[in-house]
C-alpha cells in the first residue's frame, strides 16, 4: 500500500484544474503533483515520468488523441485511469475509463466518488506505532549517547544498513528527526541518564 496517492491531472481549463486540486486537497495523503494542459509534446512520457498512482483526464483536453493516450496509460496496470466527465458524456466515452468522476456533482458526492476509486490504496496510520520495540529503544539509547551508525552497528552486532533502517523507523514512529530531539524524548522517558548524555564525546 502506498503512503500517499499521487495524481497527475490532464485538464486544459484552469478553472476546472483548480477545482480538482482544491477537491483533492480535502483528502489527507492525496495530492495533485502536476497538471498538464493536454497539448504538451510527448504528453504520455511526461505523465508517466511522475510515476503517478492515478491519472485524471478530461477527454476535451486531448480530443482526437484520446484513444492512443488511453491505450498507452492502460499498459500500466498499477495506475488508475479516471475520466473527468459530465453527466451528458456519451457512453462510448465513459466506457473507455476504468473509473470516472462526474464533474456535475456536488462537493461531497465527488469526494465520495474519489474515495471509492482510491479504495484501500491509501495506507491508514497504523495503530500504536508510537511504541518502540526493545531493539529500537536499545538503538535510540546509542544514538542519544552520540554514537555514529558504524559504532552502533559494531556494538549491537548489526549491519550499518540495519541500523539506518531502525533509525528511520524510530523517526517515523516518534515524529522526531534530529538527534537532539531524540535525546530530549529519551531523557523525558528515562530511557537514558542525563549524566551519560552529558559525558558523551
Amino acid at each position: 500500500m502506498a503512503k500517499t496517492i499521487k495524481i497527475v491531472l490532464i485538464e486544459q481549463a484552469f478553472l476546472l484544474a483548480a477545482g480538482i486540486e482544491s477537491l483533492v486537497s480535502e483528502l489527507h495523503g492525496v495530492f495533485v503533483e502536476q497538471v498538464y494542459h493536454g497539448s504538451e509534446h510527448s504528453l504520455t512520457d511526461k505523465v508517466l515520468g511522475h510515476k503517478p498512482d492515478m491519472i485524471i483526464i478530461n477527454p476535451h483536453a486531448i480530443e482526437n488523441q484520446l484513444l492512443s493516450v488511453i491505450k498507452t496509460f492502460q499498459q500500466e496496470p498499477d495506475i488508475k485511469l479516471v475520466g473527468l466527465l459530465s453527466t451528458k458524456a456519451p457512453d462510448n466515452i465513459k466506457s473507455r475509463f476504468a473509473y470516472y468522476l462526474n464533474r456535475d456533482e456536488g462537493k461531497f458526492d465527488l469526494l465520495e466518488g474519489l474515495k471509492k476509486i482510491i479504495g484501500n490504496d491509501l495506507e491508514k496510520p497504523a495503530k500504536k506505532t508510537r511504541i518502540l520495540s526493545n531493539r529500537e529503544i536499545e538503538l535510540l539509547k546509542q544514538v542519544c549517547l552520540g554514537h555514529t551508525n558504524q559504532e552502533i552497528a559494531d556494538k549491537l552486532f548489526l549491519s550499518v544498513h540495519t541500523v539506518m533502517t531502525h533509525r528511520k523507523n524510530i523517526t517515523k514512529k516518534l515524529g522526531i528527526k534530529t538527534v537532539s530531539g531524540l535525546t530530549v524524548y529519551a531523557l523525558m522517558n528515562n530511557l537514558v541518564d542525563i549524566r551519560e548524555v552529558e559525558n558523551r564525546g
Binding site: 516518534l174 515524529g175 528527526k177 534530529t178 537532539s180 530531539g181 530530549v184 524524548y185 523525558m188
Partner: peptide, 19 residues
Amino acid sequence: ENVEEKLFDLKNIILKYLP
C-alpha cells in the same frame, strides 16, 4: 533544512511527549 527539522521536532515534542 536542518533548522527546519529542529522546529518540527520541537512542535512534536510539545504536542506528543510533554508531561
